[in-house]
Design a protein around this nucleic acid. Structure first.
Lengths: 205, 205
DNA sequence: GTTATAGTGAAACGAACGGTACAGAACATT
DNA sequence: AATGTTCTGTACCGTTCGTTTCACTATAAC
């Protein structure tokens, strides 16, 4: 039928995603996106329609390749105390591992919350969906942990979900401002989980 | 010596502050600032030197007129449980009172955390100073509350400071995304304080 | 090989940006 | 009233923005 696309859409979207992650939607210029992807703007427009179209593709990729794997442990059947602790430990490790000038510091969607999402309804909905997903995953694992521990404070579940979601989001918010404090917030979250649910006896065989 | 300034600098700075609060530093154009302040750009440049100079003045005003009054109760001598609860109640009331499209939703400096502060060192320092001020004020009031309650969990102070600061910042982050959840986070913060410290007996005479 | 289709690159579009130059208006000083 | 300084409005500066146009090239189908 005609000439085939010479670039790989996935890698282009991921390169663009990192630019948006770093600079935000408004802050990322077409020149930045051309440089990062190695693709001319006319080809980007041909493939994605507009800057916004490319951004939407980048957000979709972010949800699929960054957020979803992170929450998977919490969402698994039988998830509970260990999965909660692992979630916060892994997130803290990721925050600490990145160099201070990494474009990937923080969370693309948390960054959107005070940017695009303030005055753009579709963007607001994406951020809200992220928050809901996070809260649901935490709630699921908290319920599992309470069940395993025969915890009698399940009336506190809403409080605990909000506390842990809060610590996660604040840590992402602070990732570029104070990386040490960002990590400390995630440590605090894991410590809270440990305090709420008694440590199980060490496994024997 | 010559003609006097015909506008009031304070009101101009506060008008500009609300524009930056709503749109962010990059999002606010000179045309927006002219319209909101009623002052021509040449006068703004004469008085403030640059867009950034006006922004810095707006941030200084924000710290003086918005943040400082909010934290004053927490910082007072003898502040404790009631001041902590009042802080979160008042903040929640402020979040709920504003219309959804108010330019003042959320926190100017929290908004900066993912914007300017990501790549501008002076802005980063201002946001970090805000965070340390908030944490210090919470710590002071938490210490007072622990003292009054003869609380034996003072080893948990760091955790509690981080939890409450986290809930405050997350609430500001979510103010434009989900006002109800933003208020719920602040309610949760007040509930945490109530749970940590036993309610004092009702005052008698 | 011809043809139709589709990706690519350079150049340029109008709009909006932050910032400035300058003439003139306004006021304190003399 | 004359003078000198400062504030203000218009108009424009060069730059950058997202987007589009168009000629060109490459390739699949025939």
């Amino acid at each position: 039928m005609g000439r085939l696309q010479t670039f790989d859409s996935t890698t282009v979207v991921q390169s663009a995603r990192d630019v948006f992650w770093d600079l935000g939607y408004d802050g990322a210029s077409l020149a930045d996106l051309e440089a990062a992807t190695g693709v001319n703007r006319s080809s980007l427009y041909h493939a994605f329609g507009s800057k916004r179209g490319l951004f939407d593709a980048a957000v979709a990729d972010y949800r699929d390749t960054v957020i979803r794997p992170r929450l998977r442990g919490l969402q698994a059947d039988g998830a509970g105390r260990p999965e909660l602790i692992a979630y916060f430990d892994e997130l803290r490790e990721a925050v600490g591992r990145l160099p201070l000038d990494s474009p990937r510091r923080g969370c693309l969607l948390v960054n959107c919350a005070t940017g695009l999402a303030s005055h753009d309804e579709p963007a607001r909905e994406v951020v809200e969906a992220y928050r809901t997903d996070l809260a649901s995953a935490l709630r699921h694992a908290l319920a599992g942990a309470a069940l395993a521990a025969a915890d009698d404070r399940s009336d506190r579940t809403d409080e605990r979900v909000r506390t842990l979601a809060s610590l996660s989001m604040s840590a992402m918010l602070l990732a570029r401002v104070n990386a040490a404090e960002s990590a400390a917030l995630l440590t605090t979250a894991a410590d809270q989980v440990r305090a709420w649910f008694p440590a199980p006896p060490p496994a024997t065989r």
